[in-house]
């Protein structure tokens, strides 16, 4: 796991595109987390993890403006948390 860098495969700033971009980077993070659990001393993997977390921050802020990701992200004037589409509905994917 040397010099690995995340290459975004998706673009766009509408809600569906931002969700897809977040799904992609969160998938990379999830797989890296499982690897680091088993190999906590792998410095290259830890570097890769840090770069992913840094790249995720801006994406989370952008997606949260369209639809909060967690109950901690509903920072707008409306309670968007209960609005459709829900993740399991085709319209959200």
């Amino acid at each position: 796991m040397t010099n690995r860098r995340f290459a975004p495969a998706f673009s766009g700033n509408d809600q569906a595109s931002l969700t897809r971009r977040l799904q992609a980077i969160d998938f990379a993070i999830q797989d890296t987390v499982l690897y680091l659990d088993a190999y906590p001393d792998d410095a290259d993997a830890l570097d890769y993890y840090r770069s992913l977390i840094e790249a995720r921050a801006g994406l989370l802020a952008a997606r949260s403006k369209e639809m909060p990701l967690t109950v901690y992200d509903n920072t707008g004037t409306d309670w968007d948390w209960v609005k459709a589409p829900w993740p399991w509905q085709p319209e959200a994917n």
Binding site: R20, L22, Q23, D26, F27, P68, L69, T70, W88, P90
Partner: peptide, 15 residues
């Protein structure tokens, strides 16, 4: 646990 309002991977079935 905290819920993420997204699927881990998209599911979009037409039929």
């Amino acid at each position: 646990w905290t819920y993420d309002r997204k699927l881990q991977y998209p599911v979009k079935i037409k039929t």
